[in-house]
């Protein structure tokens, strides 16, 4: 699904990622943990195609070179990034935006665009699963949403767009335990043998609810240790300093 080889990325001449290697197969869920400033969010940004980074190394998604694909095309090809801090977009109605995005991705994948009525049915079903208030969907996109509402809105988009590769960038931050459970359930119910996940997180807490197949520790722009979910538990005990 995703193959990252010797990936380096710098911004304003500062090297953030210094040769990252990860290989994710279909159906796998990988967790990336690491201290502040280790490059976790940069990795998420680079995978989504955000401009401003100087990138070198190999970045392959479904066998294609990602470096040559624009942000929107990556989304259309099934890469989804759930933001750590979803952007507030005034004037844009959440429901209309979701429909536009949904049909845009469907069209690019050669599927039939859905009319408002059929889409609203899907939207209602998915938002109910996440326990979202429907009124929220009538509001402006992320504007005035609480931290929890913003994250739920990200997971809602993930469920609607049905991506092949999901990158969750610190989706657990700022969530209370109930919201965390709902978000985790949202992820778990989306897991199948075709879909892959890359879960970026600070804390082991999220991994109590979402069980990873592999855990990588990112420190100073490099993967310093990889292992199974046991590694996350060990980290919680020893801290990042204790792993070397």
């Amino acid at each position: 699904m995703l193959s990252i080889k010797n990936l380096s990325a710098s911004i304003n001449n500062k090297e953030i990622l210094k040769g990252v290697n990860i290989n994710i197969k279909p159906g796998e869920l990988h967790a990336i943990m690491g201290p502040n400033g280790s490059g976790k969010s940069t990795l998420a940004n680079v995978l989504s195609g955000r401009e401003g980074y100087k990138v070198s190394g190999e970045l392959k998604y479904q066998g294609k070179n990602l470096n040559e694909i624009s942000i929107d095309e990556r989304a259309q090809k099934g890469i989804f990034l759930a933001f750590q801090y979803p952007t507030e977009i005034p004037g844009v109605n959440t429901r209309n935006f979701l429909k536009t995005s949904f049909n845009k991705v469907r069209k690019a994948q050669g599927k039939k665009e859905l009319d408002a009525l059929s889409f609203l049915k899907i939207l209602k079903e998915k938002s109910n699963e996440l326990g979202m208030d429907e009124k929220m969907l009538s509001r402006q996109l992320n504007v005035g949403f609480s931290g929890g509402e913003k994250k739920k809105n990200e997971i809602l988009q993930m469920k609607i767009l049905e991506p092949n590769l999901v990158i969750l960038d610190e989706t657990d931050s700022g969530l209370d335990i109930d919201a965390l459970k709902i978000v985790a359930d949202g992820v778990n119910s989306s897991r199948n043998d075709k879909k892959s996940f890359l879960v970026i997180t600070h804390y082991q807490r999220l991994l109590n609810f979402i069980k990873p197949d592999f855990v990588h520790v990112l420190a100073d722009g490099k993967i310093v240790k990889s292992g199974t979910s046991e590694l996350a538990i060990q980290l919680e005990k020893t801290g990042y300093k204790g792993i070397n």
């Binding site: 942000i71 929107d72 989304a75 991705v105």
Partner: peptide
């Protein structure tokens, strides 16, 4: 940031 956000959702 707004343009980036919308583009990650498939809009050009």
């Amino acid at each position: 940031d707004s343009i980036y956000y919308l583009m990650t959702r498939g809009l050009s």
